[in-house]
């Protein structure tokens, strides 16, 4: 093989390597891009009961009185949070298009202030897209003082396009601690105390 051929080969190898590296970087970036993409995809399609957390406009004067749907509320506690989450009613029955308001009570039962966050989930997932909330505490991080109790309303409606086979919609809120913030908070308290002393 002549020197020229060899150089042609080497150039080809270099080109192939660079293209491969570009593809690698692209795929690595793609894997990370999948995280937000999945999120968007879930919100659009309702996979996993991920709900849209932004406040939505409620549509009025459009109630479908031909059918009733039961909406259940379940509250749960993740581990490590000295809070209690209550809902004033376990279930409501309403027409698609009708607006309803349900109060949730958050109480901090510890002797220190904490941050927490309520993670929502909806089932069946065909219903997820049809739950509209105008005010909601989903995913929002909340701070409660020691022993504090706060009521928060959930104002929502099911839109009229709710598939007919859905007769019960279940909303679950699981309360989780926001560890980092709480730790910072408590560290801060100790610092302050130290300063005074």
């Amino acid at each position: 093989m002549s020197q020229d051929d060899n150089e042609v080969r080497q150039a080809g190898v270099r080109r192939t390597v660079w293209r491969s590296v570009a593809a690698l970087v692209g795929m690595f970036a793609f894997a990370w891009a999948l995280v937000p993409l999945y999120d968007v995809f879930c919100r659009v399609t309702g996979i996993n009961g991920q709900v849209d957390t932004t406040a939505q406009a409620l549509v009025h004067d459009d109630v479908d009185e031909s059918r009733m749907v039961t909406v259940q509320f379940i509250t749960r506690n993740g581990s490590g949070l000295p809070w209690r989450l209550d809902v004033e009613t376990r279930q409501v029955r309403l027409h698609p298009g009708q607006t309803s308001e349900v109060n949730f009570t958050f109480s901090n039962q510890s002797r220190s202030e904490n941050w927490a966050r309520a993670v929502p989930s909806v089932t069946p997932n065909t219903a997820t897209r049809h739950v509209r909330k105008s005010s909601c505490f989903c995913f929002e991080e909340q701070l409660l003082q020691a022993g504090e109790r706060v009521e928060m309303p959930l104002v929502f409606q099911l839109d009229r396009d709710l598939p007919p086979e859905v007769t019960t919609v279940t909303l679950v809120y699981t309360l989780y601690p926001v560890e980092g913030k709480t730790q910072k908070l408590q560290a801060g308290v100790k610092l302050d105390e130290g300063g005074e002393a």
Partner: peptide, 28 residues
């Protein structure tokens, strides 16, 4: 690279307090 990405996310969840796969932090 996708495997590398996913185990890096795990690493961050374990050591740097992110919540890619942790429901408590809004992950899935």
């Amino acid at each position: 690279p996708v495997l590398a990405g996913v185990i890096t996310m795990m690493l961050m969840d374990i050591n740097f307090g992110t919540s890619f796969f942790n429901a408590a932090g809004g992950g899935d």
